[in-house]
Design a protein around this nucleic acid. Sequence first.
DNA 1: GCCATTTAAGTGCAATCTGCATATAGTGTC
DNA 2: GACACTATATGCAGATTGCACTTAAATGGC
Lengths: 127, 127
Amino acid sequence: MAEDNETPSTKIPSEMLRAHLLALLKNWSGYGYELANKLEEAGYGRYNSGTLYRTLRQMEKTGLISSMWDTSTDGPARRIYSLTNTGSLFLNNWFTLLDMHKATLNRFMKIAENVADPYDKSSSDKE
Amino acid sequence: MAEDNETPSTKIPSEMLRAHLLALLKNWSGYGYELANKLEEAGYGRYNSGTLYRTLRQMEKTGLISSMWDTSTDGPARRIYSLTNTGSLFLNNWFTLLDMHKATLNRFMKIAENVADPYDKSSSDKE
DNA sequence: GCCATTTAAGTGCAATCTGCATATAGTGTC
DNA sequence: GACACTATATGCAGATTGCACTTAAATGGC
């Protein structure tokens, strides 16, 4: 499977990418190239490999995941990542955070639902 | 209300910030300082003002919102923002995207639930 | 053997984004 | 005048990102 950049469609914001990587590593250990393939199969385009590998290293540095080399298979060595306790907690919190954000968004959208907008330009042009 | 940085608690990732600003501007027009206050009241700490103002200008440049000066009130002039059609569409899509991401996260977490992990280290537990 | 391709991870560089501190400017209060 | 509050913005250093490129091990075709 080569890097073909054919489906740039739904770009995941960085925080989302982190959450998705953590989710993939729950109950499983995986390496960068494999994770990139799974993201692609899930409908996100081929994620930029430079960003992906650097994101993984950065997540390791901040303690969300840990890694070790695997030289047992044929082909180039793989850096195997697995979830740390911190990463597991982060993943759980992420769901809570998503729900909170969604609730806040809905609340924000309703704040001014039936109130006149002092700057509204569609009601009656006073200029 | 001065900038006191007393509640840094729940930092909003940049894409989330954009979505929240769009939600606040739905059915309403507002200016930067006011939006910062509403974010603070909603429980997010005092968002960094430099980032906030620059994010708003960038969102204007990309067509999500539009602005005009308001010099009718006392005090310094306010830059009033309101949602464009593009911004409105973006906001609606954001909800869909959030749900899709959540669904994908759940799917990812279940992929390997009952499968043996070839790299599992729980036999020789370290760290 | 030689060469292209696949798998796998990584780096260099420019552009962008972010946080912190600071600047600028209008108004009101003492 | 000194000070605080409102309101927007900029300078700079450090972090993040996308794009292109590099390194390296193995495979398949000739």
